[in-house]
Design a protein around this nucleic acid. Structure first.
Lengths: 182, 182
DNA sequence: CGATGCATGTAAGCTGTTACATGATTGC
DNA sequence: GCAATCATGTAACAGCTTACATGCATCG
């Protein structure tokens, strides 16, 4: 009986990537994490390699040396047990505690904006809006690269990032209007 | 010259709370962190007390023993240096890297939903939608408790939580419709 | 033949959580 | 008097980041 522990967020995501691009290298997993503009994860080698070793130790992925490549690549595949763990991680996401664990540094700061003098508030909100617009553009561009038919799930995930970015931007504009128009 | 390091997210939030309810106890800071349904922070004593000690060591807050209370309460106040640090933390929020660091466990999972058989996908999405509705209600209730005039910044922050929750729910419904209607 | 990208790792450190531990105050 | 809340902390650990270190492959 394998350890039935719940995977961490990054573990679940990495295992999901291994499954999706099976077989692939650890490096590939890192690159996939990096290419989404909306990903929280830095996915440095310092987190990914030990993480994947751990998953291998627990039998969730298996490795095979790629002899055709002189760099000593290691190809990763998900195991039957890994698939079961991934499913478990997936459905565990429908809990109040995970739904509410969304961190938003912008919103956090809004509560304390009165610490800035009015002029600086305006400057800050201006810059924020400009950066948020740029971020929205990034997420939209990323969405445009996902095929709606071939990569349905990637498309829907990327769509979520766009929708959230739109909502944040709209909220920011409301804030700006509320604070600066009187 | 004091250490000009940038505060972490939780440090900034805690310092902001101290400033807002100055003077207040560390316990009060924890309770404030807990009462928002959209807060990412668990704000356990194990994080808050050492954090506030650190801020005191760096001269960002000062403490005073409350002799009128037998429990040995310690009252916290923000210092001039603390105000400067808080402002710095605030404006540092307008950076691409912080804007994009929004973690969404629901969206993360969407990319891998194809790991579940269709029937389980439907069950999962149903449960998710129900929980998201409950979460939206929580944030709305919290918003209703914030005065739009007296607590303008708290109101705007809570409004952001509601707007994000609405956008996530709308997106979830799109996902459900897309995946289950064919 | 040099730059960029592919590829794999380790060590130290930061930040926050969980679990534990203690005790006073307030309201019923 | 007892329960809930107020109040303060510590120790161990989990999880991820930063910085460092190495070396082959590919393309111009």
């Amino acid at each position: 009986m394998a350890s039935p522990r719940v995977l961490s967020e990054l573990e679940g995501v990495c295992l999901g990537i291994v499954r999706k691009y099976d077989p692939c290298t650890a490096y590939h997993v890192r690159m996939k994490l990096k290419e989404a503009p909306s990903s929280h994860w830095k996915a440095s080698s310092g987190s990914v390699y030990p993480l994947l070793s751990r998953l291998e130790d627990e039998g969730l992925i298996k490795t095979a040396a790629d002899t055709s490549d002189g760099r000593g690549r290691t190809l990763l595949s998900i195991t039957r047990q890994g698939r079961a763990s991934l499913k478990k991680w997936l459905v565990a996401g429908a809990s109040q505690n995970l739904i509410s664990s969304l961190t938003d540094p912008i919103r956090s700061r809004m509560f304390f904006l009165d610490a800035l003098p009015a002029a600086q508030q305006a400057t800050y909100l201006d810059k924020l809006e400009a950066e948020m617009e740029r971020y929205l553009t990034d997420t939209e561009r990323h969405l445009a690269n996902q095929s709606q038919v071939e990569e349905r799930y990637n498309y829907l995930g990327a769509l979520g990032a766009v929708k959230l970015a739109e909502a944040r931007l709209a909220w920011l504009r409301t804030v700006r209007h509320t604070l600066l128009s009187c």
